[in-house]
């Protein structure tokens, strides 16, 4: 395994980094969808974040990465087997390739065991591997429909239910879904889009200074990965501390009634469909407040996350080209005085 590129060494792309941090602080946000061209550092950023997070405690030997202090039953009864032992494992980062078969994703009957020992055993798929970590799908807009349906189901319920080949199994599959894609190569179905908590647009950096800096950093990283990573160790540690602190503080962050009202007003002003948008907006604002070390949500927290929480939920008129981003910006300017 290669050393991942340090998260804090990524040049620019502030919105994407912010969205990923929010998702890391509040896993219930429902993942991040990144729209953008190739070569904008999408996958680098996601990988980097997974590499940045501290190792998680797991039950040793559990194929589903169960947490020792989680009371939810594991199908393998891993906690009974392991007793009080715990182990550490890096936060999983699973790359779901476009051509993946359903078997690979969901898991299937372990043919090897079945043939060799006659044992009926479930071979966990990528969903199990991604439990408690990140599931990254590049070019999610080109993913086959039936896989998309399946992912949606699991992403929402946090449980993978397998009913096939004489197996009847359910196992936890709670992961932060990160999708990326270029809308010019095929649209994403609105049903799927809506399930993502946040969405960001990344553009290829146009500032020449930034571009040169990117090339320089990549080159330094290539030539001396360890040295380069060491250079950013402090910044990485600071980010890590920020995430850890925010995660701890999150349950205590207060959302006043006025803030709930403001969220609702904003959603109806921009025409964001459904309750999910409102809920995501407030959860994101809460995570934002936690990240900045505040005890309660302020209007500016809502303003800071509104674009990424709502952008992809606006009813769209095919023949209307006004960008969602500017519609939201207008609503924010009206409702939240700077």
């Amino acid at each position: 395994m290669r050393i991942p590129f340090p998260f804090t060494a990524i040049v620019g792309q502030a919105e994407m980094k912010q969205a990923l941090l929010l998702a890391a602080v509040e896993p219930r946000l429902g993942g991040v969808m990144v729209f953008g061209d190739r070569g904008t550092g999408k996958s680098t950023a996601v990988r980097a974040l997974a590499g940045l997070l501290p190792p998680m405690k797991v039950v040793p030997g559990c194929r589903y990465g169960c947490a020792p202090d989680d009371r939810a039953p594991c199908i393998e009864g891993c906690r009974d087997k392991a007793g009080k032992q715990t182990a550490e494992a890096p936060v999983p980062f699973v790359d779901l390739p476009l051509g993946a078969t359903e078997d690979r994703v969901v898991g299937a009957l372990d043919l090897e065991r079945a043939l060799a020992t006659g044992e009926k055993r479930f071979e966990p798929g990528l969903l199990a591997k991604a439990n408690r970590g990140f599931l990254y799908i590049d070019e999610i807009n080109l993913l086959e429909d039936h896989l998309v349906d399946l992912l949606l189901d699991v992403a929402v319920s946090g449980t993978n239910v397998v009913e096939r080949e004489g197996l009847s199994i359910r196992h936890p599959a709670r992961f932060i879904l990160v999708g990326s894609g270029n809308p010019e190569e095929g649209e994403l179905r609105p049903q799927l889009l809506d399930r993502f908590g946040l969405s960001v647009d990344v553009r290829t950096p146009t500032d020449m200074g930034d571009r040169i800096e990117i090339v320089k950093r990549c080159d330094r990283f290539d030539r001396d990965p360890a040295g380069f990573v060491a250079e950013f160790a402090d910044a990485e540690q600071a980010t890590l501390d920020r995430i850890a602190k925010a995660r701890k503080a999150l349950p205590k962050v207060q959302v006043a009634d006025e803030m709930l009202g403001l969220g609702a007003q904003l959603c109806s002003a921009v025409g964001a469909d459904g309750l999910r948008g409102e809920l995501t907006l407030l959860r994101a604002a809460r995570a934002q407040a936690a990240l900045s070390g505040k005890k309660d949500v302020k209007p500016h927290h809502i303003a800071e996350v509104a674009t990424m929480a709502l952008r992809h939920r606006l009813r769209r008129n095919v023949l209307d080209d006004t960008g969602s981003t500017s519609r939201i910006a207008r609503a924010i300017a009206e409702l939240i005085p700077a």
Binding site: G39, G41, M208, R211, I212, I214, V215, C218, D219, D222
Partner: peptide, 28 residues
């Protein structure tokens, strides 16, 4: 070299930053 390759990539209409990064690796 970094500047030269980055500037040239933009002038050639290459949007992806991956290209100059790869170009520098090739040069090395």
């Amino acid at each position: 070299a970094e500047t030269a390759l980055s500037v040239a990539a933009v002038q050639l209409g290459i949007a992806s930053v991956r290209a100059p990064v790869l170009a520098l690796r090739v040069a090395r």
